[in-house]
Every structure is written in C-alpha cells, then in structure tokens.
Design a protein around this nucleic acid. Structure first.
Lengths: 333, 333
DNA sequence: CTGAAAGCGCTAACAG
DNA sequence: CTGTTAGCGCTTTCAG
C-alpha cells in the first residue's frame, strides 16, 4: 500500500503538504500542488480512509439491519435506503440477521465497534428488554438510530407505516365483499412492532361485524414460498369455510396457488388481500389486492431522521407516520 | 466514546495490559485480568475497530458490488453470500450500482480506500477497457477479487453459471415443444459477460433447427415489472406469430400476464422459459419453466475463491463453473 | 507479569 | 506557503 509518506517523498514535500493538497486546502502554491498531484497519480495513491476515520471519529458508514435481504420487502427497502444514503455520501454496512434473533445484538455491537455514523434497523426479532439477556439497550447506544416499523423506545426515532389504517382498509374491503369467515395470518410477537397493529386493528374491525375471524400465528416464519404453500394447503383444508384471507404477499400468493388447485375460484369464492405490496403482488394471477407500504417514503423519512440526528439537530417528533394504501387487484371484488 | 485509556485508568494498569486482556494473551495474572474485565464492563467499553484495522491493515469487510439489490436474483445472491461471509467473521459493504455504470468505478475506489479485505463483483455495466475512461483496471487492484457471471480479466477469479448449457436446455425444450417462432430477449452488451452465452448458445441451437429466431435487445434495462409488461404487450402485438419466449423471470412473468390478456393460452399456444429461477418463477401462474442458476453454489464458490486469495493461497483455476438446470413448470409442455 | 514507547496513516495546530 | 509535531485508539516490541 502506498501511503502519504511515499507521496511526500516522491513529491519532495512533507506529509502535511500532501494532506493539504488532498483536502483542497488554501495556501498551496500552484507548483507544489502540481508536484503532489502528479506524484499521487504516478503512485496510484489512494488515501487510507481508515486512518482518516480514526482521526475524524466518523466513518460515513451507516449500518442497516434487516431480517432477510432475500425478502422482497426488505431488499426493496434497502434499495431505496441505499440510493438516498449514497447521494449523501454514505456507505452501507449490510446486516441481515437471517431471522436469528441473537444476531441483532451481535450486529449492533459490531457496528458500534466499527464506529458507524448511524444505524437504521428494521428487524422484529428481539425484545427491547429481552429475557434471554440478548436484548439491546438502545437508549444507551449513543449512536444515531432510526427504527422502521418497530417500537424500540420512548426516545428513539421510529418511522412506520400506518399499519392500523392498513388493517382497517383490508377488513373493510373483505367485509364489503361479503366475507363471513376470514382468516388472518401473522408472525410471532416477541416484540412491540407497529406491524402488529394491522392485525389487531383488522381483528377489531371484523369483531364489529358479524363475520367470524380465524387467527393463525406462525411459529417460525421462514420467508419460504414452498413452506407457505404447505401452510396454505393445510389451512384451506382445515378451514374449508373461509372466504377471506389477510396475509403478507408471499403467503397470499401461496393461498392463490393452493386455492386454485382445489378448485376454489378467486375472487368469487375466496377473497385475498396481501400485505406489503411487493412485486410478488403484481406478478401473481389473479393480481393481488394489497395494502401497500410506501417503501420510498419509509426510506426517505428514515434517512432524513437519521441525518437530523447525525447533524446534531433535534427531531420534531420521534414518531414519523407514513401513509398506507389499499391497492385493488383481482383477488377482491 | 470510552477508550482503552479510560479502561486502563479505571483498572489502574497500563493500556498495554488492557490490550493483552482484550486479546486473551497469556501471561496475565488472574487478578489483573479480573480488574481489567470489570473495568471494561463498568464502562461498557467497546474496542475501537477502526484503530485495530489501522494497525492490522485489514478490516474484515468484504465489498459486494451488484447492479440492484432490489432485484430478486441479486438480493438472493447477496443473501447467500452474507450468510457465508458472516460465519467466517466478515461483514459486508453493500454496493448497489443502481444500474449506473460509472458507479462501479466509484465503488471500487471507495472500497480500496476503505481497505476492504476483498471484493465480490457481480455487475454487468462497465467494460474492462471502457472507452469512456470509466473502466477499472482490475489487474492492478491488488485486492482479492472474485467476479460472478462476468469475465473481467485473465488472472481474475470468475465464478459463473453454465449459461451455455442453460441456453441449450431452453432451446431444446422449446424446440421439442414444437415452437417455430421463438423470441428471446436480452440486455445490453457493453461487456463480456458469461450471461450472454446463454443467448448465443440459444441462438445457435435454434439456428440448427428450422425454427425462426427473433432477437430483441433491450436498451435500458430497468428491472421494472410495469415496463416489462408494456414491452411484452408491444412485442406480442408486433410479433403475433411467436410461440416461444426465452427471457429473465420477471420479463417472462410479464409475458404470461400480457399473453393471457389477449387470450393466448399457455403453454398450448405459447411456451415460455424464464431465466434465473427466482421466486418470481414459482409465484406466477402458470408456474414458470426456467433455467435455474444455483445461487447457493455461486455464493459458496465465490466466497471460497475469495478466501483462498485472502489467505494467500493460489486457486486451482480462475474459472469456476456452476451447474445450471432446467426446472419444469407449467409454461412448457 | 507489566509498563513505556513506537508506530499504523492521516490531520491539524503551531511555528517559521 | 510549508515543515515539524502531537495525537486519533490500538498493538506490539522491548525492557524491567
């Protein structure tokens, strides 16, 4: 590795001068500047970012923690976050917990050690006060932090979709469509997550009607289509009377497939509403009706909230709500 | 930030001793060790990784460069790479070029400055000897590097799917199915990419039959389903006679949708084979027949090849081939 | 077994 | 305008 010393020697100046040229400081004679520049070029010099990071105590790196980068929702979220951070000069350290709860804490510690400038976290695995001792004390983290779709603590910025509204929209739609036996599927609830709101609100709306609600809680969510298909087949058999389903896109897609297999027609005989509105919803046929999270907004607001913290300004509010919408497809009337 | 100095002071020892305890060195009295350990705990000390990196001249970070993390193929690839790197103690710097060719070089330079221990690159945008001057001289990079599905240079490790075989399998399948007017769609070819092989091989196989091949080259690939749908609709109208299609999963999915819309039945009237075999292929109906890249193998072999370089061992071969398979769905007979 | 000191590559006073 | 020097937080000789 060629260092600033090598450049200095080659240019016949001191390292301070090289540093000045690198950082476009004033008060450098044109001649010296050119000498240094050409020495840099000749040696193909690249300033060592780590050394600078050590000095400035900042890395221009943001840690992004998600459950699974293979999942369309998260990969799209990361995509949008990446675009925004890149334009602000930040890089991303990708932390995909692979749905392993403990890994969240490991990643947080790693990111702290690595002096990242901030963290955006979007996992749902660990409890804030986890009984396993694997919990993370986010309050004492002293790193700019934004959580997406999850309540982490009183003083921690959270950007979240209006899941409550999503649950309401979905319930209304299914009820309007005349559904009477409605199944909703949700994941484990180890933590306080905004995403749960959609299911409680959904349940509340249904309970105010004369329709019946069947709740199914998944034990080990794997984000795997084959498993979802098995699950869908099993549930359709177990509850042959259901005429409405509310579940995340990929599960909803599995229901479409399995329902077709046993000759149930969609939407006439069975209505389905997906959650998230990823590309999956658009690709299935019939096209999935879904409550869509506005991923671009989630990304924008999160990055914005993070930058506010990084720049030592205070947020107007720690709770930032992003709208959600019902997107009509062909799985409802 | 609490530093090693603070710990040393609190424990009443020198920084050297604290360092020794941290790194589990021998020759530390039990008593001192405990003092230090408790001081670390009390202060919630986290060793500054950046300082260590500077000393060791390594960061345990691998840069992963891809065109778009929002695309199912790449997000899954990154997923598998992440899992493997994580278990080896490495972190990932995610570099999604958003299909902007110039960004590849920017990322490479950034990664160099950041002293990453290695790079896995899977983009198709930049030419090795790019006329725009944006080209990257991979030979002089002096960082362990592995390229996936792309030829970068003579001495650079490349892990690639057997796309040639993929093209052959697809062509055989469509011909066996009796297709006579076959459309294949591919992206721009600014670079030498293994992925192109499937299309040249596909074309070769078709040319040996009496079927007719229509090639369509996309100018600006966006990975966007809505745009693909428009494209599919247009092409189906422009070439009403086509009875076979070969294109990436998402484009193939668009063809399924658009073909249905105009009343063409699949697979009877129109056969479709997708490329990649992402979740998209499984979710569409009819289920897409596809040539599947073995993402797990691509990830494993890439990481392996990278580790070989990082450990200063030499690779048996710079070209590592990964098998590909035809997965029968419902869009062919 | 432990401490003092040099140095990783870079930056920012402080002199000159 | 430029060089010398101290120091970012850590590790590792080298003494003791």
């Amino acid at each position: 590795m060629v260092s600033i010393q090598d450049v200095a020697k080659k240019a016949g100046v001191s390292v301070a001068t090289v540093s000045r040229v690198m950082n476009n400081k004033k008060n450098i004679s044109q001649k010296t500047r050119e000498q240094v520049l050409s020495a840099m070029k000749e040696l193909d010099y690249q300033p060592n970012e780590i050394a600078r990071n050590l000095f400035y105590k900042k890395t221009d790196i943001i840690g992004v923690i998600i459950p699974d980068i293979g999942h369309p929702f998260y990969s799209n979220l990361v995509r949008e976050i990446e675009i925004r951070l890149y334009s602000l000069g930040y890089k991303i350290m990708l932390c995909s917990t692979s749905l392993v709860p403990l890994r969240e804490k490991e990643y947080i510690d790693m990111l702290r050690r690595h002096m990242v400038d901030g963290i955006i976290i979007c996992t749902h695995s660990l409890d804030v006060e986890d009984s396993l001792g694997g919990g993370v004390d986010y309050h004492h983290l002293s790193i700019p932090l934004v959580s997406i779709n999850r309540v982490i603590g009183k003083n921690i910025a959270t950007v979240y979709s209006d899941h409550r509204r999503g649950g309401e929209l979905a319930a209304k739609k299914l009820l309007d469509n005349g559904c009477r036996q409605i199944l909703q599927i949700f994941g484990e609830r180890h933590i306080v997550s905004h995403s749960d709101d959609r299911h409680t609100e959904f349940a509340r709306c249904i309970s105010q009607s004369d329709a019946e609600l069947i709740n199914y809680r998944m034990e080990n969510d794997t984000f795997d289509f084959a498993e979802y298909s098995q699950l869908a087949a099993r549930l359709l058999k177990q509850y042959p009377q259901i005429d409405g389903v509310f579940a995340t896109d990929l599960i909803a897609a599995a229901f479409i497939h399995e329902a077709k297999k046993i000759g149930r027609s969609i939407p006439e005989d069975l209505k389905i509403i997906g959650i998230d509105g990823t590309v999956i919803a658009k690709v299935v046929s019939p096209v999935l009706t879904c409550v869509r999270q506005d991923i671009q907004q989630l990304a924008s607001k999160s990055v914005e909230a993070l930058m506010t913290q990084i720049n030592h300004k205070t947020l107007n509010s720690n709770e930032i709500l992003v709208g959600i919408s019902l997107e009509e497809g062909e799985t409802t009337l």
